[in-house]
Structure formats: structure tokens, C-alpha cells
């Protein structure tokens, strides 16, 4: 196995850990942390895919844009959690379940 392949597998593991985090964490901010971990995995995966094709700079530029998008997502999610804390008094996602059925 060459290095990009190793990196890609590692990236998938990171995405998997992120998924585990979104499923096991109850705190909204921790869910945001888990999403960040997923995105780290995605960045590595994109760059590794570019590297495998000898197009490392293509992979880099895609990853740079994804990094921007993902940062905006994180900011929005954090702003939302600030608001959630204000309205619901807690960050526990189980409190956010009034829209049910």
C-alpha cells in the first residue's frame, strides 16, 4: 500500500469516528466537534485522492474550499447552540425534540 492509500483509509477512520461522535454525544457543541472531525477526514481524503492521481494541487484547492465551507458550518452551528442554550436552557439534544411525530 502506498502513502495516499494509507492516508485515505485513515481519513475514512476519522469520518467514522466523527459519525460515532454524532451518534453518541448529547451535547450540541460536542456534536459540532464530531462534525469537525468528520470534516478533517474529508480534507485528508480529498488531498489523498488528488495525490493518488498526481494532482495534489487540485486536491489541495478542493480541500481549501471545503475548509471554508466547513468553517462556516461550524460558526453557524455554534451560533445556533448559543441560541439554543438561551431558549432551552440546555445544550442536550434530547431537549430539542418538540417537533415530534
Amino acid at each position: 500500500m502506498n502513502t495516499p492509500a494509507v492516508a485515505f483509509v485513515g481519513a475514512l477512520v476519522l469520518v467514522g469516528i466523527g459519525l460515532v461522535g454524532t451518534l453518541t454525544c448529547r451535547n450540541l457543541i460536542k456534536v459540532a466537534v464530531a462534525l469537525q472531525i468528520m470534516m478533517k477526514g474529508v480534507l485528508i481524503a480529498l488531498v489523498a485522492a488528488g495525490a493518488a492521481q498526481g494532482q495534489i494541487n487540485l486536491g489541495q484547492s478542493l480541500a481549501a474550499i471545503v475548509l471554508g465551507v466547513d468553517t462556516i458550518g461550524a460558526v453557524i452551528l455554534l451560533a445556533l447552540s448559543v441560541q439554543v442554550r438561551r431558549r432551552f436552557g440546555t445544550l442536550d439534544v434530547s431537549a430539542l425534540s418538540q417537533l415530534r411525530r
Partner: peptide
């Protein structure tokens, strides 16, 4: 449709 984010995910 529990409305719980975790279960949706």
C-alpha cells in the same frame, strides 16, 4: 419520528 437529532442521524 422521535424528533431527536441523534436518532435521525
Amino acid at each position: 419520528h422521535t424528533g431527536v437529532l441523534t436518532l435521525n442521524l
